[in-house]
Amino acid sequence: MKNLIHRREQRKVVGDKNAIIVRQFEHSDNPEVLRIFQDGLHEMIPDTAFRALKYHPESMSLYVIMTLVCLIATKSWCLTALVPIAVLCARYYYSRQIALGYLEIAKRTDMGDIEGCYMNTPDCCLWVAVQGDRVIGVVAAVSHLSGDGAVELKRMAVDRSCRRRGVGELLGQKVLEFASARGNPSVVLGTTSYSPAAHKLYQKLGFRCNGVTNGYTVPGARRLVLEWVFYWVRHHHYHLDMPKAKTNTHGQH
């Protein structure tokens, strides 16, 4: 069945080289998939280091206290002025360290064996968005660990040069189609992104945020005190209930 769908998707390419299609992952896609995934993680570094600050008043308060302590201890405005710069540098450093640690874990697990983790079981799949011969986006679906039959949307990433073309929406819809075809009751996802565009995309697809974990421990973090001081993120939990199959008067679906 997967091969039949794949052939149909491939036929859509003919006649329009600018068309964006979503098809199943092929072995030859691996380098571009890893590049897009890695670029997306690198974008998360300034996102969590700088943009996240306004969402964490507790961190801002801590940094203000650090600045005041420096002023009282040194009585030097020049040295005190360096504290905010040092804080931003530290936030960038630890955001980078954790992102790179997470990347290494991903390469040793699912992103290092995409075919084995996603393509050799009916419970999982990974798709790529393609324009012409170029891979411009990726998304995956797996059975959620909760065991309630939910599907988890994972590894969503779009090439930076191809944003705002509806690529993310096409990828998300493919996961919803996968869940609908399998009769899964819901689709879930989690994100630590602070980018408004990412949250607008999930909401456009029909997801609703049903919880936030403040101080989420990202895989790759070492749980050091300095990491806790300079890396503090929120993990947003999104949920979408799939439409239930209608039953006719004879009790048949």
Results as ranks from 00 to 15, higher is better:
A150P: 00
P185E: 13
G166W: 13
A90T: 03
R155Q: 12
F37I: 03
V83Q: 09
A90Q: 01
A86K: 05
F230K: 08
L240D: 05
Q97D: 13
K12F: 11
I114F: 06
D16N: 15
Y55W: 07
R8N: 15
L103W: 15
A106W: 12
T48G: 10
N120A: 10
R182T: 09
V13L: 08
R134T: 05
I20W: 10
L100G: 00
E115I: 03
N18M: 06
F230L: 09
S195P: 00
C209G: 01
H236E: 01
E227S: 01
L224A: 06
R51C: 00
S76W: 14
V225E: 13
L205H: 09
G15H: 07
L34P: 05
L153P: 08
L145T: 02
S195W: 02
L176M: 14
Y216N: 00
L88F: 03
I20Y: 12
G220Y: 14
I36P: 02
L170F: 10
T249A: 02
T249S: 04
L170G: 09
K2H: 14
H42E: 01
H250F: 10
Q252T: 14
I72R: 06
D113K: 06
N184L: 06
V218Q: 04
V167P: 02
P243K: 14
C162E: 03
E177V: 11
Q203T: 04
S95F: 11
R35F: 03
L201W: 12
K107A: 14
L226C: 01
F230R: 10
T109L: 07
I105C: 05
R7L: 09
H27N: 12
L68D: 05
T74C: 03
V187A: 11
G215N: 06
N3I: 06
Y63A: 04
F230G: 09
F230M: 09
A129D: 01
Y102A: 04
S95V: 11
R11M: 02
S193F: 12
M119H: 02
